[in-house]
């Protein structure tokens, strides 16, 4: 139950949607599934005066483009992403990641674009603030940080928890962004500011229209792991994505990417460790140590930094082993 009034529009095209957002300015918000937005509006941590719904727009099915990349409509429901044969066959990691999101109902309701643009989260921030933590924090336009009172740097340490974004970053996906002045294309990684206060680089009237995932090379391997407490329904404690390409010898790694989610203001990458993996025969244990030391996980939702780092170390090793085996064709 949302206890304030707002307006609602359901345009027939994304173009109209972006025009509506543009007219209303920062007070309007896109409603693309609503599984993140509705709970946030209910506790009034976001309070748009206009919702521009995309539910009147039918998403195109995922399709293969001429250049071999796969185009996914941003309005694709997560459950459709899980079930799409093209995705299962060509991008199994994406299907697997989408299958770990929240619950069946959320996957049925939520869209891919919505998942990528979900708000960052923090136990203190995601509250009803009528008598708990009344003083607004940085993210609520105020001048404190509830969990870290010593944080006087105007930064927000809420974490970005998408299960799918790290996969798309690892796969070098491109985003087609529609704005009032037409479309532009950005690399998936450039969607994020790395700032918990304003996590996204999108303009107020910009909408992700489509996601393009380029084809993967030969001897490509991937591994995905989402640590949760309950095995379902949960946001991730830590999410780990690893992709790599092996050389013809089946041993040497040509290049690798490691992307973490749920432990930073945006997705995190241990770039130095990644560099060390180029043209090298990998020792997963050593790489896991290096990668887990290189990033600085933010404590969140009751998990402290030391524990997260250890969890990341163990699962980086395991995920890397499975990525290598995948590239070797063993799994």
């Amino acid at each position: 139950m949302i206890l304030y009034d707002f307006e609602y529009e359901r345009p027939g095209s994304l173009k109209e949607a972006t025009a509506l957002l543009n007219e209303t300015g920062g007070d309007a918000q896109l409603l693309a599934g609503g599984t993140d937005l509705m709970p946030n509006m209910r506790v009034e941590v976001v309070t748009p005066s206009l919702l521009v719904s995309v539910s009147g727009i039918e998403p195109a099915a995922p399709e293969k483009c001429a250049d071999g990349s796969i185009r996914i409509d941003s309005l694709t429901k997560l459950s459709d992403l899980v079930d799409a044969e093209l995705i299962q066959n060509e991008l199994p990691m994406l299907a697997e990641a989408a299958h770990t999101v929240a619950s069946n109902q959320v996957r049925v309701m939520g869209t891919l674009g919505g998942n990528l643009c979900q708000e960052t989260r923090c136990l203190y921030y995601n509250q009803k603030h009528d008598y708990q933590f009344v003083e607004p924090c940085y993210k609520r336009g105020g001048d404190c940080c509830y969990p870290f009172p010593g944080n006087d740097r105007d930064v927000c340490w809420a974490v970005y928890m998408s299960d799918i974004a790290p996969v798309l970053i690892a796969l070098d996906a491109k985003l087609e962004i529609l704005g009032p002045d037409g479309t532009r294309e950005i690399a998936m990684a450039d969607l994020y500011t790395g700032d918990g206060m304003n996590p996204f680089t999108l303009g107020t009237a910009e909408i992700i229209q489509a996601i393009f995932v380029p084809p993967v090379p030969e001897r490509f391997g991937w591994g995905y792991h989402k640590t949760t407490v309950r095995g379902g329904l949960d946001f991730g404690t830590a999410i780990i994505v690893i992709v790599l390409q092996l050389a013809e010898d089946g041993e040497t790694c040509c290049w690798a990417k490691i992307v973490y989610s749920a432990v930073g203001q945006g997705p995190l990458r241990p770039t130095t460790t990644e560099l060390s993996m180029e043209d090298a025969v990998l020792d997963p244990a050593l790489i896991a140590v290096a990668a887990s030391q290189e990033i600085s996980p933010l404590p969140h939702h009751g998990f402290n930094k030391g524990f997260l780092r250890e969890n990341i170390r163990v699962y980086t090793e395991r995920t890397l082993v499975s990525a290598i085996e995948c590239a070797q064709g063993k799994i």
Binding site: P39, L123, R230, G231, G232, H301, G302
Partner: peptide, 24 residues
């Protein structure tokens, strides 16, 4: 676990107060 800080409850939903699901 109901997590609290200074008498305030941190996890006020079933997302963050983790009751067993069917997986468990």
């Amino acid at each position: 676990e109901v997590m609290t800080k200074d008498g305030y409850t941190l996890n006020t939903s079933w997302l963050d107060y983790r009751m067993p699901t069917i997986h468990n």
